[in-house]
Design a protein around this nucleic acid. Structure first.
Lengths: 223, 223
DNA sequence: GTCTATAATTGGATAGAC
DNA sequence: GTCTATCCAATTATAGAC
């Protein structure tokens, strides 16, 4: 008997169809893309399954729930980003160089990830009690960034604005601009990434003419 | 018989309970807040009704559908923002002053609106075919902003980056930072708004020392 | 590991009394 | 204009065959 979902797989993503990847991995890639473009709650398990090329119940062999798919994606990002940011927050060196390094790492990670991570940090996800542990992890990331920003304000390198607002603005820029580029395996166009980082640095630097020198220092002695 | 939804209205917003406002208006305010914090698709009509203090079916006396609530909110924003931006895109004067004016208008509108507008321009909403007409309207807004940005690049006032990326970055900053402040009727703290505008201007200006002069010009002869 | 079939729940929306 | 009662569709998840 023909299943009502049919067999049409014409509008399926490349990542989802790639036959060399294990199904679990294809699910993560496809789901991250759908979460980013349609939102977490609006994305159905049927859509994910269809894009992967399997039936909806087959998803549950690889993940115990839809939540678990998102949680896996959150871990893949935060388990890298939090230690990076905390190390930079505690490191020696000028706040400008440390912020540049953080931004460079973050942008590169977002742009090079096989997943589209821009659907993870929306209000609809972050306010959902199911993801509270990851919200706490993310709070540590925020605290680390704000420590770097506060150092820069104290040293006179950064404009004197509330650090939580600036951090929120930075998050907004990164998520919004990299939506278009993440999860697409394009090697993350290093020129583009550097432009985004420079845009953010100019916004916070009191003296943006220092930017080339900061860039040079940030790229030297990459820890 | 006691209805399963109960009568608990303890966690209800001020805007929703305000007894002087017509119900239709209270629905819009409450719904905009829920869309912003929980997302459009994750917000149920039952939640909206509970926060307003009525039963779920009563909503449909004021709006034909949940979609219509969001469409009303979209109109309230875009019907103001698009003409403003298009007028500035076609106006005389330096690109810097025009961008400053646009940002000032937009930030003030977002901060002073009785609605929390930050839940409207998410991917889950903008990619939904039901809202395609508003996506087209918004494209006109984007085009107007990009015209101002392109003017500034051509005149040497703005850093030379792809205007669509910069426009996306600006959108990200505004939506993210003003989430916390919009729809809260706090008069929109003019100092805070100016800080956000300045942050954005510094990011795009080749010579940020011009900022005080630009601000003075933008605030003179307010069209 | 994937399938069909289906359970269990929740969602938006309608009917009609008051 | 709000209510109760309810419909119908869609959703996540499970059971069990292959």
């Amino acid at each position: 008997m023909l299943h009502p979902e049919g067999r049409d797989r014409s509008s399926v993503t490349l990542a989802g169809r790639s036959p060399t990847l294990p199904t679990r991995e294809r699910i993560l890639r496809v789901a991250s893309g759908l979460f980013a473009t349609r939102g977490y709650h609006a994305t159905t398990t049927r859509e994910i399954a269809a894009a992967v090329g399997i039936r909806q119940p087959s998803l549950f062999h690889h993940f115990p729930s839809k939540e678990a798919i998102l949680q896996t994606l959150l871990s893949s990002d935060l388990d890298v980003a939090v230690p990076n940011a905390e190390a930079l927050a505690a490191a020696e060196g000028s706040a400008s160089v440390r912020l540049y390094r953080y931004l460079g790492q973050d942008v590169a990670h977002l742009a090079n990830s096989p997943y589209n991570l821009s659907g993870l940090y929306t209000e609809e996800v972050m306010r959902d009690p199911a993801f509270a542990p990851w919200v706490r992890k993310r709070a540590r990331l925020h605290a680390a960034i704000e420590r770097i920003l506060a150092d820069g304000v104290a040293s006179g390198e950064f404009v004197d604005m509330p650090v939580s607002i600036v951090r929120e603005a930075i998050t907004g820029v990164l998520l919004r601009t990299l939506t278009l580029y993440s999860g697409q395996d394009r090697g993350g166009d290093p020129g583009f990434c550097e432009q985004i980082v420079s845009l953010v640095m100019r916004a916070v630097l009191i003296d943006p003419s220092r930017l080339p020198e900061i860039r040079r220092q940030a790229e030297r002695n990459r820890s």
